[in-house]
Design a protein around this nucleic acid. Structure first.
Length: 405
DNA sequence: CGAGATTCATGTGAAGTATACCTTTAGGCTTAA
DNA sequence: AAGCCTAAAGGTATACTTCACATGAATCTCGTA
């Protein structure tokens, strides 16, 4: 039997591999953003008028995940805020990720959340939406403010609820007498702006900046820079940086992923009492990241979604056991779903709703569900799990426990 | 044999309902002058 | 009379249901070669 106290004493005594883990965490803003000088310059010059208390143009940033959009905006805003503080300007920034479920995924919730960030108390439901707008406006008019509003992953809200929000937001300036507001939209979807109302498009996209993906060489440089902050140089094994960069370059140059790989690899090395981060830990890190991501998505899912997902796993498992062709459809899932509701004592939803839930699970990337026509045999969704076998087992257990099955 | 009609299972949109929560309003009670 | 509390009335957002119509290719039908 291992003495826990001994282990903990040991742990405390050892320094661990990390010198400073923060530099590899996703919310870290480095003082130096490599390969984005051009974009930083553009953003800065577009937003600079705010320091004369003039409203900057609305701004739109495009680029795949991990191309530094959020980072660049954060970096520039941080600097602007510092200068504004020196100058005593009443400049405020609000950053909001529109993808967050149950926080900012409808018009009401989005506006309410912005107002909350500004210190206005808004109930979760009950108010008319235009009342929330009024509160928001009132909150801005309390004193002369220039608000820079960053809406990250803005395409998500528009996909779900239409572009009315954007129209209202761009219009809000005309209602403001004292204060002004600039909107900075961030989107991963390059096609996004073509889908919105032309009026919104012209006012929102006054300025546009595209962020190209990083290539493998650039990723390596970025990794080295951060690694230097996080580790002593000899801790990183041969070829580790290169491999991280290569992995991430495959995924459309996602720097966030590259950094996460390195961090998790470091944590795994540490846990294994290794003196060095070796290439093999990166493979493990890859898997762990994916597992954590999926576990995180599944665990924050509402109950009905969990039951639905559990049913999908069950059906998929059945087919695998029988060794039949693995195709299954909405109807199959619904039958199993109803049984699962019965055994968990939950009131089953209608098939209409479960169909929507399946579509949403597809959106979250945990399953694949494509609408197909089976000709004579109708039209439905062909469903499959989008997660590797070992992770499926894990979420299966998780769900069983969570649902009491 | 092939063009067009048929068919199936469920996708999908619109409208309605239940629930939980909000503000307003009116009445009743208390309090202080 | 003014102030405060409470409960009812009237309103909303959201998640879900109900209803009704839309879909799209495999299959069927039937006229033609």
């Amino acid at each position: 039997m291992v003495d826990v106290k001994d282990f903990l004493r040991d742990y405390a005594k050892n320094e661990g591999l990390f010198k400073n883990k923060k530099a590899l965490q996703s919310n870290y803003t480095p003082s130096n953003v490599p390969y984005r000088d051009e974009q930083i310059g553009q953003v800065a010059s577009i937003l600079a008028p705010s320091l004369r208390m003039e409203r900057p143009s609305n701004l739109f940033l495009y680029g795949k995940t991990g191309t530094g959009k959020t980072l660049v905006i954060g970096h520039v805003l941080e600097n602007i805020l510092e200068v504004a503080k020196e100058e005593g300007l009443n400049l405020k920034t609000v950053y909001l990720n529109c993808k967050l479920k149950r926080v900012a995924d409808t018009e009401y919730r989005l506006i309410a959340q912005i107002a909350r960030e500004l210190g206005q108390d808004i109930p979760a439901t009950g108010l008319p939406t235009d009342e929330v707008y009024k509160l928001f406006v009132k909150c801005l008019e309390k004193e002369k403010i220039l608000l820079l509003l960053v809406l990250d992953e803005i395409d998500e809200v528009v996909k779900n609820t239409g572009d009315k929000i954007l129209y209202n937001l761009t219009r809000i300036n005309s209602e403001l007498k004292e204060s002004e507001i600039s909107i900075i939209g961030i989107s991963n979807d390059l096609m996004f702006i073509d889908q919105v109302d032309p009026r919104v498009k012209s006012s929102l996209g006054e300025e546009e900046i595209v962020f190209p993906p990083y290539n493998a060489i650039q990723l390596q440089k970025i990794l080295r820079e951060r690694a230097e902050l996080s580790f002593e140089s000899k801790i990183i094994g041969e070829g580790v940086i290169e491999k991280c960069a290569a992995y991430a370059a495959k995924e459309h140059g996602d720097a966030r992923r590259a950094l996460e790989l390195l961090r998790v690899a470091g944590e795994l090395a540490e846990r294994n009492n290794s003196e060095q981060i070796l290439v093999k830990y990166i493979d493990n890190a890859e898997e762990k990241i994916e597992r954590d991501r999926v576990v995180d998505i599944v665990s924050t899912q509402p109950k009905q979604f969990k039951i639905t997902l559990f049913s999908i796993i069950q059906v998929s498992d059945e087919y695998a056991k029988k060794n039949e062709s693995g195709d299954f459809y909405t109807g199959d899932i619904y039958e199993v779903y109803k049984n699962n509701c019965l055994s968990t004592g939950t009131k089953p939803l209608t098939q209409r709703r479960v169909g929507d839930i399946i579509a949403e699970l597809d959106m979250s990337g945990i399953i694949n569900a494509r609408v197909i026509s089976k000709g004579r045999y109708g039209r439905t969704r062909r469903i499959s799990l989008a997660v590797p076998e070992n992770i499926v087992k894990k979420i299966d257990l998780m769900l069983r426990e969570g649902l009491g099955l």
